[in-house]
Measured scan of single mutants.
Amino acid sequence: KKYKVVEVKENKDGTVELVVENENGEKKKITLSKEELDKLKAGDTVELK
């Protein structure tokens, strides 16, 4: 499934919390490390299994 990044929030521990949404409007929260996030920004599309 493809999800669009709608919100990006940095946590104090250096991880980043993303809120992503698919075309049905379903939202998910995922947490990434700073390194994983470096290639993402709001409006990008991510694929989740």
Rank of each mutant, 00 (worst) to 15 (best):
L48D: 12
K2N: 06
T31C: 14
A42N: 13
E7S: 13
K9E: 02
V46E: 13
E23M: 06
G43F: 02
K41S: 06
K1P: 06
E10C: 15
V5E: 00
N22H: 06
K2Y: 09
E17Y: 12
L18S: 00
G14R: 02
V16N: 02
T45N: 06
N24K: 11
K1I: 13
K9W: 07
D38H: 12
T45P: 03
K9G: 07
L32Y: 05
G43Y: 03
T45Q: 06
N24T: 09
G43R: 01
I30K: 01
K49S: 15
K39A: 05
V8M: 08
G14L: 03
V16Y: 13
K28G: 06
E36S: 14
T15L: 06
K9T: 10
D13H: 05
V8S: 05
V16S: 04
K49Q: 15
V46F: 09
N24P: 01
I30E: 00
K1G: 10
G14H: 04
K9L: 07
T45M: 12
A42C: 13
E36G: 15
N11F: 09
D38F: 07
E17P: 00
E21G: 01
A42V: 15
K29P: 03
D13L: 02
E10A: 09
E23A: 09
K39W: 05
E10W: 07
V46K: 01
K12E: 10
E35G: 14
K39S: 14
D44N: 04
L18W: 03
T15E: 04
K29M: 09
E10K: 07
E7R: 06
E10Y: 09
E26A: 07
E21C: 13
Y3L: 05
K28Y: 14
K29G: 09
K1M: 10
L48W: 05
L37G: 15
K34P: 08
V20H: 01
V20F: 04
L48H: 03
V6N: 02
Y3P: 01
V6S: 02
E26K: 04
L37V: 13
T15P: 01
K29T: 14
N24A: 14
E35F: 14
K49L: 15
D38Y: 06
T45S: 11
G14A: 02
V8Q: 04
K9R: 13
V8G: 01
E36N: 15
T31P: 05
E36T: 13
V6L: 11
D13F: 03
V46I: 14
E35W: 15
K9M: 08
K34R: 11
K27R: 11
K27F: 08
K1V: 14
N24F: 14
T31Y: 12
K34V: 11
G14P: 00
V6Q: 02
D13I: 03
K1N: 09
E23K: 05
K2I: 07
K9S: 08
T15C: 07
K9F: 12
K29W: 13
I30Q: 01
E26L: 11
E36K: 12
K28F: 15
G43D: 03
G43K: 01
E36Q: 11
K49Y: 09
K2T: 11
V8T: 04
N22Y: 03
K2V: 12
K41T: 04
K9N: 09
N24E: 14
V20N: 00
K28M: 14
G43N: 04
L37M: 11
K9V: 10
K34N: 10
G25S: 02
E26N: 04
V20L: 10
K41H: 07
E26D: 12
K29E: 06
K34C: 12
Y3I: 04
K41L: 06
E35P: 13
L37P: 05
K2R: 06
N11S: 09
D44G: 03
L18C: 04
K1H: 13
K2S: 06
E10F: 08
I30A: 03
G14I: 00
V20G: 00
K4H: 06
E7Y: 08
K4A: 04
N24S: 12
D44T: 02
D44F: 02
L18Y: 03
L32E: 00
Y3A: 01
E47R: 01
E7W: 06
A42E: 14
L40I: 14
K34D: 05
T31I: 10
E47P: 09
K12F: 10
D44C: 07
L40T: 10
E47K: 02
I30N: 00
E36D: 12
K12D: 11
E10D: 13
V8A: 06
V20D: 00
K49W: 06
V6T: 08
E7A: 10
V8F: 04
K28H: 14
N11V: 07
K27S: 07
K27C: 07
T45W: 15
G43P: 02
N22M: 05
L48A: 03
K9Y: 10
V16Q: 03
K27M: 12
E21H: 04
D38I: 06
E7M: 11
L18M: 08
E47M: 04
N22R: 07
K49F: 09
K28T: 13
E47G: 02
V5D: 00
N24M: 13
E23C: 15
I30V: 13
D38M: 07
V46P: 04
V5S: 00
K27A: 07
K28E: 05
V16W: 12
E10H: 14
